[in-house]
Nucleic acid binder design. Structure first.
Lengths: 200, 200
DNA sequence: GAGTAACTGTTAATAAAACAACAAATTTAA
DNA sequence: TTAAATTTGTTGTTTTATTAACAGTTACTC
């Protein structure tokens, strides 16, 4: 997958664009390799030099985007000296939403067709990994009020489902707003969030 | 220049697009082969497999468009049974304007930068050729009221200058209208066209 | 006006893609 | 359900493009 050679770069780019254009036009399982090749202006055999089949292609496209989340760039603000934990989380979450926003056309294609049932889980795995790293940076080996795995699972499940919902509903809030909602709920908890009182 | 091979097709297409994009951004003489190659995602050496230099490229792009005029398709209406000469000319002229309209983005680039002084002459040569053919079809070897070369030169000069003016002035009339103007002037002549009377 | 940076045009060796042909699997329609 | 048509995945050979290097030119700039 190292695309040093210009021909390889151009071929891979062509295949990706061709495939995404076709995904807009028809269902995944109606797409043939020949159609992908024709649009990309490559020979069908060339497709097989780079991918096993169209499932492999889709998987690699998804993985490429997960990698962007995994290898998340941490602006200084994420971890600035003396920053509040809360703001550090907020920045990280906001950044994840921004990344997803950049690729939202791709995700929408998958989500709205319900062709990738596991996309939410892919989000969750990636976000879990990001926050495991973040926890190590912030807390080292220090003990926390609850078991670390419990915190991480709770948090990444919440964020990934919010992400999925956000894209599936045409991104009705900004990444900034979404991050703020999540931090509020993670600070106060959803129950305290709605107030603790008697039901009418 | 037969682009049977997909790689050749793609390379030529890439070079053309790259070059036209660059022409929108900067002057022709500021464009380097490296810039063309970079945008087209090809190696610089590949450029030289297909073109001598950027002048050759521009010339071939112009010639390609002139060929479209030269190899003009003649819809049945152009030469339908019992059609008036006037309407036959009108259809042909309209069709030339339509062809130029399709490529007008390209022509505008050249005209508005005044980088192709001979474009009007290229138009004139192409149109002359089209009407030589048309005259042969319509009149065969028959003698006409004036020497045929005189008629053809007069007509093609008028049409090509109208074409040039039309593109340079953002195509303020439709091809239909332009053809109608030209046929009117060619029927009555520009002097009769404004009336023959005493100057005030 | 010397020095250096960028561009030009060309080459030889190497890597990638095209092409055509194939058997096998899958879809489609009769 | 069978026959025809399409798609799949693979292969060997040929063609094209890439790469890196070259000397010669033009364009900056100090």
């Amino acid at each position: 997958m190292t695309a040093a050679d210009l021909r390889v770069k151009k071929t891979l780019l062509g295949i990706e664009n061709s495939f995404l254009e076709l995904l807009k036009l028809k269902d995944f399982n109606k797409i043939t390799i020949q159609q992908i090749a024709d649009r990309a202006m490559i020979n069908r055999a060339t497709f097989y030099l780079h991918y096993i089949d169209k499932f492999d292609l889709l998987e690699k496209l998804i993985q490429k985007r997960m990698d962007r989340i995994l290898n998340i760039y941490r602006p200084a603000a994420h971890l600035a000296e003396g920053i509040l934990y809360k703001d550090c989380f907020l920045n990280t979450i906001k950044y994840v939403f921004q990344l997803v926003e950049e690729d939202s056309e791709f995700y929408e294609l998958l989500i709205k067709r319900d062709e990738v049932e596991n996309l939410k889980h892919r989000f969750e795995s990636a976000i879990l990994h990001v926050f495991q790293e973040r926890f190590r940076e912030l807390f080292g080996q220090r003990a926390l009020p609850l078991p670390r795995d419990i915190l991480l699972t709770f948090l990444s499940a919440a964020i990934s489902s919010m992400l999925y919902w956000w894209v599936a509903n045409n991104k009705p809030y900004t990444p900034e707003q979404m991050a703020s909602f999540i931090v509020q709920l993670s600070t106060n908890g959803p129950i305290k969030g709605v107030g603790i009182g008697l039901a009418p």
